[in-house]
Amino acid sequence: MFEFLPILLDGARVTVEITVAAAVIAVLIAFATGLSRLSRSTALRGVSAIYVELFRGSSLLVQLFWLFFVLPHFGITLTPFQTAVLGLGLNIGAYGSEVVRSSVLAVPSGQNASGAALGLTRFQVMRHIVLPQALLRMLPLWGNLVIELLKGTSLVSLITVSDLTFRAYQLNQATFRTTEIFTMVLVIYGSLALFIVACTRGLERLYGRHMPAREGM
């Protein structure tokens, strides 16, 4: 049974790489568009809202296939790995955008008002007063999203990226040791998910402990 382990773990490495890369893209897009939706500019708000609805409204697999099959026809050719990271990043980024927006809105409005009363600019209030508080609220929600992302990475096997799911599928076709292979894969995904949960909890504790002192509240 353990002769499959090196192959599966190599696939798990690809899964982790995609998860990390897509998470970085998702966080960047989520903050850019989530904050844009709270901006005064109608254009920024509009573009961000369309992005969010587009990627939350349609299916992740359809989005991956679209990037994989249709984009080359418009002259943009990405490797399967790049397609996977871009597709997952855009998809999770749309959900993350809502997380950012709702967490910022959940900070009591008195914080905005007192920041303004102290003579801070809108940008300074957001940067030094609202965002640090919003960040603490959004950490557990981001933890859930990264688990969704991890589970979503299994779909990249369908656009020929040789991640954990892809390796399992191929091993199964070659050896027919079905029960062992898929049980091991379930255990690996489960362990990765537990690891993400542990990381999120740790971050929450760390940030929650340091935030009041660092922000001088």
Binding site: K151, S157, T165, T178, F182, T183, Y189, A193
Partner: peptide
């Protein structure tokens, strides 16, 4: 928790092949 923590695609394969 186990079902929520693992991908649907693997669960599909599991039921289909195992």
């Amino acid at each position: 928790e186990a079902v929520r923590g693992t991908p649907l695609l693997i669960q599909l394969y599991f039921i289909f092949y195992v």
